[in-house]
């Protein structure tokens, strides 16, 4: 009997080699440990064993059972690991294939530049006010000290609408609209669309955007010196460290009037076609609000004074982006738009 057991053990362990397949392992388990397996059979035949040998045989059976069980357990563990390994390999992804992108649009560069300008100006204490595009002569011209028939009106070729209305030629109407409902002290910027009779071309467009800004307080509190300071800060923040200069100029609604130049961004002052070899490019017009403008909104110029400025968004955007064709802003070519950020805010 002992020999018989040793033979069962030897055979089982021989079959349960390291590379035994799952099927073989199962067969051995059933044959040796199963309900009518070899060890069960031996236990059933115990009554034929001499009582003295029974414990010895019994122990041997148990030892063999444990040993085979452990072996099977180990093999099964090994087999499961192999199986998992195989299934993992077959689930392999080509990680170089494209991901599923969440669609993102792109902000229009004119919006982006305009928002950036407004962010800087709001940071300097200006409030944003929106005003209307369809205007009357009073708010676009007369109140801004453009007398009828004055050649200054020819500087801005106007689109006229029925009923004596027109499309505003600048956002300066914002000064009048805002001052009709608010009193100084105030610091306001008015962004928006403007219209002038120019064909769409590399350098001009019949519709474009401007930002008008103005700051008014009691006489003597806001001077042209502050205008210089505010706009110099703005230019530095917007264009980066650059040299600026102010020149005398003329606008009917400011006195004194000035224009702000910055060092040409394209040639850095060396002189190029864009800056007409002067090294400077014009950025905006500005000045101290003309007494007649204050009078038009029933403010006494002896009591109040302030400055105003206006700048073209598209033109400035061209400069900042280093491109030279205004039409790109109106074509909406996705290959152009796609290069701008997917967020609406400015960069700061």
């Amino acid at each position: 009997m002992k020999d018989q057991l040793e033979e069962i053990r030897r055979r089982a362990l021989a079959e349960l080699g390291d590379d035994a397949e799952a099927e073989v392992v199962e067969n051995v388990r059933v044959r040796v440990l199963g309900r009518s397996g070899e060890l069960t059979e031996i236990m059933r035949g115990m009554r034929d064993v001499a009582p003295a040998e029974r414990p010895i045989i019994g122990k041997l059976v148990n030892d063999i059972k444990r040993e085979v069980e452990a072996r099977i357990e180990a093999l099964q563990e090994h087999l499961r690991a192999r199986q998992l390994e195989r299934s993992l390999a077959s689930a392999r992804l080509d990680v170089t294939l494209p991901g599923v992108r969440i669609p993102r649009g792109h902000v229009h560069p004119v919006t982006r530049i305009m928002e950036e300008m407004l962010d800087i100006l709001c940071g300097m204490g200006f409030e944003v006010e929106y005003t209307q595009d369809v205007e009357d002569d009073f708010h676009n011209f007369a109140a801004l000290n453009f007398p009828p028939n004055h050649p200054a009106r020819d500087m801005q070729d106007t689109f006229f609408l029925p009923g004596g209305m027109l499309l505003r030629t600048h956002t300066s109407n914002g000064q009048i609209r805002v001052l009709e409902r608010r009193r100084p002290p105030l610091a306001v910027v008015c962004p928006g669309g403007c219209y002038r009779r120019d064909d769409l071309s590399v350098r001009a467009a019949p519709a474009f955007n401007q930002i008008e800004g103005f700051m008014i307080d009691r006489r003597g509190r806001i001077t042209m010196s502050h205008l210089k300071g505010v706009l110099t800060e703005f230019a530095k923040e917007f264009f980066g460290e650059t040299r600026v200069r102010f020149r005398g100029s003329f606008f009917p609604f400011t006195e004194p009037s000035a224009e702000l130049d910055i060092y040409c961004l394209l040639c850095s002052g060396a002189g190029c076609a864009v800056c007409k070899y002067s090294g400077w490019t014009e950025v905006l017009g500005c000045g101290m609000i003309h007494p007649n403008v204050l009078r038009a909104v029933k403010l006494d110029p002896n009591e109040y004074q302030g400055f105003a400025f206006g700048m073209g968004v598209e033109r400035t955007a061209l400069m900042k982006l280093g491109i030279d064709d205004l039409r790109l802003f109106y074509e909406n070519d996705v290959r152009f738009l796609g290069q701008f950020p997917s967020v609406a805010g400015g960069s700061r």
Binding site: T111, D133, Y330, N332, L337, A344
Partner: peptide, 10 residues
Amino acid sequence: AGLDEVRTLA
């Protein structure tokens, strides 16, 4: 939502 912003003439 995947929409590009455009600006067109009035």
